[in-house]
Design a protein around this nucleic acid. Structure first.
Lengths: 229, 229
DNA sequence: CGAGAAAGTGTGTTTTAGACACTAAGAGTC
DNA sequence: GACTCTTAGTGTCTAAAACACACTTTCTCG
């Protein structure tokens, strides 16, 4: 079964840069390629867009197929279309980035039988195609976005401590933050709900857990509120 | 001459949302469609990406062909890929937005023989395809971006007065700004160079001309400077 | 019960944002 | 050439936000 067109058409893929956060490291989800080209090398999860699905649906499908991840914060990043980025044919890739709660996916199902693994962003293997460039773009975007939108919560579990949150911000912003000022500022946004729960089995004073109040955020945002750290 | 593929491929187009600024109005450049579908309707300039050119090159070529515009600030906006957005076949459109100095292009050459015209953004005609959605997205982007990057200068002529600049900001932000505070803030960035030139033939005190110091901006940006109005 | 380790908490200072109103300059009119 | 019209240009005070900064609390473990 083949298809004929009057003019040449590029192939279109969707690729996903999936970030997770783990104690002190930003992590990236990669899959190992089963086929040529770049067979055996690590690459971003992704694949060809099907004719009946939207781009968003496409990434979601590919992610589920290759990694088992299916509910996440996903946003279009950039479209990469240099003529020579794939040795086989002209391939245009619409890249997305996603933020996931790492601990919710510690075991990654790989129904496509390829290897799937998390890598620290600071220590990535060599990637297939121009995926390094895509990852760089995604990193830049996330680091910029974290400053003015509360996307950091997508990387943390449902319940987290203020120290967890601060650690996340310090990692992404690559600068230390003052504990008192950080807490003052983050609590002033009125986006965190303190829970009646505390850490267990820690060898020091137990920290209180909080959760992100998403409904409140939507509410505030409609009234022109601006999150800024 | 036709082409055959093993699997179906979508067509890929590039479309450009070109903004200009004229005294008090933000304007948008549109072309009139010569062919079906949507024949006779206004649409964004754009067309199919050729196999040997990058996406950036593609938009630039299409823009030059259809409107004669060839040197401008151009940035990728978003990729639109809903399956039904084009009635002919599956078409994925990589949209760009551009900012041009309107007076430099007052006469638009239309080498493709189609009509080309500027429309006030506040008063657009009905557009072909999902181009209204694309324009909305571009508008949102530009309005957001103008706050934290000095892209406004791309819309103004080389030499402009502070009142011109303020009018531009007021139009884009859709709010009046205090003259003294605006001037204080904008001059404090150290990005404007006062010129030894003044308005001519105006029936009131002549305003001084300024120019944007692009080199200075690059310099400051590298040192982590953050433009913000 | 002392040591270690992280949680939690408040104030004073500096910087930045915002409100606000008059004088200066040039052209046009009588 | 005096008056009017129109926009250019300018400074201060107040309020809010950002930032610097250090000690006490709570818990576990040995």
């Amino acid at each position: 079964m083949s298809v004929t067109y009057k003019y040449p058409h590029p192939a279109v893929t969707v690729d996903a840069v999936v970030f997770g956060f783990d104690d002190a490291d930003l992590k990236l989800l990669l899959v190992q390629r089963l086929a040529q080209p770049f067979k055996g090398q690590w690459a971003l999860p992704g694949g060809f867009v099907q004719m009946h699905e939207s781009l968003d649906q496409g990434v979601r499908r590919e992610l589920a197929e290759e990694t088992g991840i299916d509910r996440l914060y996903l946003e279009q990043l950039y479209t990469f279309g240099e003529p020579e980025r794939d040795p086989r044919e002209r391939v245009i890739s619409v890249a997305y980035y996603a933020l996931v709660k790492l601990n919710a996916y510690h075991v990654v199902a790989a129904s496509d039988a390829s290897e799937v693994a998390w890598f620290a962003v600071a220590d990535l293997p060599k990637l297939a195609f121009d995926h390094e460039k895509i990852v760089e773009t995604a990193l830049r975007r996330v680091k910029a976005k974290i400053r003015y939108e509360p996307i950091g919560f997508e990387l943390l579990p449902e319940k987290f401590t203020l120290s967890d949150l601060q650690r996340l911000y310090e990692t992404l912003l690559e600068e230390p933050l003052d504990k008192r000022n950080f807490r003052k500022k983050i609590l002033a946004t009125d986006l965190l709900v303190p829970l009646d729960e505390y850490q267990q089995d820690v060898a020091h004073r137990a920290a209180q857990f909080y959760r992100f109040n998403r409904a409140r955020y939507e509410q505030l945002r409609e009234r022109g509120f601006n999150f800024e750290l």
